[in-house]
């Protein structure tokens, strides 16, 4: 395909944004789209985690609520990892140094993947930063939350526990 004139491309992007607005609700109750996970120790796939309850979090160093979510995600990871649960956090910073600086100040005790191209958030049609998805052990997307609200931590935890219990009772 020939290069579109810039303005046309710009317009099509606008229309693309519009299209996503019309379906602004985050994905739920469907198979979680598989995405590659580029981690510090190499390349993984989200599908590799099938069989675990996954809290998939999209975050960025520049996002203020993300700072508040990290201590809680660490706590969840430490509390439920041995029951087959994991947090996976996909960073969307375009500059890796900024993500690294954030992690230096706010260390993550769960797997972190880096997606500077924004492919994964585009696939998930992430409506805002942060957005988190709960994926059950069969790989189904079950819940999505936009933003991180400290007051709702107990509710988030209940949702995780419910999926863990569902997994445990199915065995």
């Amino acid at each position: 395909m020939r290069h579109l004139p810039r303005i046309a491309r710009r317009l099509s992007l606008s229309l693309a944004i519009c299209a996503t607005l019309l379906t602004a609700d985050a994905l739920a109750n469907q198979p979680a789209p598989d995405v590659p996970l580029a981690m510090a120790d190499g390349q993984h796939q989200l599908a590799d985690y099938r069989g675990q309850v996954v809290y998939l979090d999209f975050w960025a160093s520049w996002c203020k609520p993300c700072q508040r979510s990290f201590p809680w995600m660490n706590a969840m990871q430490n509390k439920y990892a041995d029951r087959g649960f994991t947090v996976i956090a996909i960073n969307v910073d375009t500059e890796r140094e900024l993500a690294d600086a954030f992690l230096a100040a706010m260390p993550a005790e769960f797997p972190v993947a880096f997606d500077p191209q924004g492919n994964a958030p585009a696939l998930y049609r992430v409506p805002g930063m942060p957005t988190s998805y709960l994926i059950d052990h069969t790989g189904q997307l079950r819940l999505a939350h936009q933003g991180f609200h400290v007051q709702k931590q107990a509710q988030y935890e209940q949702e995780i526990v419910a999926l863990i219990e569902e997994m445990e009772s199915s065995k």
């Binding site: 981690m39 120790d41 993984h44 985690y49 230096a104 005790e109 972190v112």
Partner: peptide
């Protein structure tokens, strides 16, 4: 994967 993750986590914990 678990082993790999554990390695990554250790690296992060080290930080």
């Amino acid at each position: 994967i678990a082993a790999a993750l554990a390695g990554a986590t250790c690296a992060l914990l080290g930080q």
